[in-house]
Computed example of a mutant assay.
Amino acid sequence: MRALLAIVMLVLLSVPALAVRPDEMLADPTLEARARAISTELRCLVCQNQSIDESDADLARDLRVLVRERLVAGDTDDQVRAFLVARYGEYVLLNPVVAPHTILLWVAAPVVLLIGGIVVWIGARRKRHAEPEPALTEEQKRALDELK
């Protein structure tokens, strides 16, 4: 039973590695390592938040091949990323860049969280300092008993 579980775990862990096909791999291990590192940072444009390194989509395969072609041509890692951003836009990057046009993306979540925390703190403080509701008067108690 444990052997079967171990085999299943190994197969599940190797699924992302199956996305890169042997015919895509470069003969030079250094270039291949660079290509894999770049591929993990690039978003598959047809998948949901998956890198091109782990995606089986045809477009992801084309992008992996393109990355390898650019590396073989002598481009640096930054040049390959810049080429793909120029071609597909910044959406191709899994981690967006910090720039003036993306500052809202980086600042919005902490600001919303801070505002929400302040609202909860103010609400809790008001509730704690609120006056307790007055007890029923004798007349109200009799009226309530009559309704029963």
Results as ranks from 00 to 15, higher is better:
M9Q: 09
W121C: 07
V65F: 02
C44T: 01
L114Q: 10
R70G: 04
G123D: 13
L93S: 06
L144W: 07
L4V: 13
A27H: 04
T102P: 02
P16W: 10
L71S: 03
G116E: 09
V107R: 15
L84Y: 02
I122C: 11
V8N: 04
R36A: 14
L105E: 11
Y88T: 05
S51M: 05
D56Q: 03
V8H: 03
T137D: 00
G74Y: 13
Q50S: 10
Q79G: 11
A57F: 04
R87W: 04
L31A: 09
A99G: 03
Q48K: 06
N49L: 03
V46T: 15
S14N: 12
T30S: 09
E90I: 01
V97F: 05
R81P: 00
A27M: 11
V8P: 01
P29A: 14
K127G: 02
E32L: 08
A99E: 13
V112N: 06
Y88N: 05
E139L: 15
P100L: 11
A6M: 05
G116Q: 11
D28H: 02
A86G: 15
A27N: 08
A86K: 10
M25R: 12
L94Y: 05
R81T: 13
L42M: 15
V8F: 09
V46C: 05
E133I: 09
D23Y: 14
T102D: 05
I38V: 15
A6S: 07
L4P: 00
R81Q: 09
L12V: 12
T76I: 07
Y88C: 04
V72S: 05
I38P: 01
R126I: 09
L66S: 04
S14H: 07
T30A: 15
N49H: 11
A99M: 10
E131D: 07
A73T: 07
Q48P: 00
E146D: 11
L4I: 12
P132Q: 08
V85C: 04
A143L: 13
R81D: 00
I38D: 01
L59G: 02
A86P: 02
D53W: 13
E69M: 09
V67C: 06
L13Y: 08
L26F: 06
R2E: 15
E139G: 01
P22V: 03
N49S: 10
N95P: 00
E54F: 04
A109T: 08
I122W: 14
R36W: 08
D78A: 15
D28T: 01
G74L: 11
L4F: 13
L136Q: 02
R81E: 08
G116F: 14
L12G: 09
C44W: 01
A27V: 07
P16R: 01
L26D: 03
S51L: 03
R43A: 12
W121G: 05
V72P: 00
A108W: 13
P132A: 07
L144V: 07
E69N: 13
R64I: 07
E133Q: 07
R70L: 15
V20S: 06
Q50K: 12
A57I: 00
K141S: 00
Q48Y: 12
Q48L: 05
A6T: 02
S39C: 13
E32S: 06
V11W: 10
E41I: 04
E90R: 05
I115G: 06
T30P: 00
A17T: 03
A86S: 14
